[in-house]
Computed example of a mutant assay.
Amino acid sequence: MTISLEQVHPLIGNKFQLETSNGVMHLELVEAEERPRRGIPENFRTPLLLIFAGSSRQPLAQDNYFVEHPALGRHIWTVAPTLADHAKGQYQRPHEDGGTCVYYQVFFN
């Protein structure tokens, strides 16, 4: 299944479930955007970037994880830590567990 911006954009603010070696954890989808094509031939998809927020108390390493959401089903995605975007007010955003948020990206090209 190919994930599209039209599918994920309405899910901003939703929690996605990840299976990790330490058990299940949840990440909140905070951003979804198509990236510039930069010469990619038309028969290839437009790159899609998803940004998730999680707890600083349970940081994740870059790895492949089973990711599940009721609207999208279950997939294996490569999840990688990324820096908070200061321009978007992500720096030191509080997490619901009392820690601060850390950010992760999933990139489809």
Rank of each mutant, 00 (worst) to 15 (best):
Q105L: 03
T78C: 02
K88D: 03
Q92D: 09
V102D: 08
P81Y: 02
I51D: 00
E96T: 14
H69E: 11
G99I: 00
D97N: 09
R45S: 11
Q17L: 15
R35F: 06
S4V: 09
L27V: 02
Q58F: 12
V24D: 14
Y91I: 10
T46Y: 10
D97M: 05
N14D: 14
V102R: 14
D97V: 07
Q7F: 05
H69W: 10
D63K: 07
M25N: 08
E6P: 06
E42N: 12
N43I: 15
Y91D: 07
S55C: 10
E6Q: 07
P59R: 14
L83H: 04
P94L: 09
F52Q: 06
N109H: 06
I51A: 00
Q7D: 10
D85S: 07
H26T: 03
Y65V: 01
G23Q: 13
Q7C: 07
H75E: 00
F44Y: 11
L11M: 05
Q92R: 15
G73Y: 11
T82M: 08
N64L: 07
Y91N: 03
N22T: 02
E28F: 13
P41Q: 14
E34L: 07
H9Q: 15
V79Y: 00
A32R: 04
R74G: 01
F108P: 05
V8C: 09
R45W: 11
E68A: 15
I76P: 03
D85L: 06
P36F: 13
S56N: 14
N14A: 11
Y65W: 15
L11I: 08
F52M: 03
T20H: 01
Y91L: 04
Q7S: 04
S21H: 10
R93S: 05
A61D: 05
L29D: 10
L18I: 12
L60C: 02
V8K: 12
